[in-house]
């Protein structure tokens, strides 16, 4: 199942399938959000946005609408 990254629930992992073109595309790439990388939803901020994701051993916070441009395949537990 392919969903936007922002729909990933806390504790869920996904494999990055696609990053839509946009101002953040390159930035995501630099931060480690590359195709086939495993990303885990880890923390929600007190106001539910942004969300922190674990990627390649680091924790990166992204806003909801920006996370929506990354499509991930949900991994089974």
């Amino acid at each position: 199942m392919i969903i936007p990254l922002n729909k990933l629930k806390i504790g869920q992992k996904g494999i990055i399938k696609n990053i839509e073109p946009g101002p953040l595309e390159d930035r995501f790439y630099d931060l480690g959000f590359t195709k086939e990388a495993i990303v885990e939803c880890v923390l929600k901020s007190p106001f539910n946005d942004p969300t922190a994701y674990k990627i390649k051993g680091t924790l990166i916070a992204i806003r909801e609408e920006d996370a929506a441009t990354i499509k991930v395949g949900v991994m089974d537990e």
């Binding site: 953040l24 930035r27 942004p50 680091t58 990166i60 916070a61 992204i62």
Partner: peptide, 10 residues
């Protein structure tokens, strides 16, 4: 508003 990313360090 532009995009926002921040790293949360260990």
């Amino acid at each position: 508003k532009s995009a926002f990313t921040i790293e949360l360090p260990p």
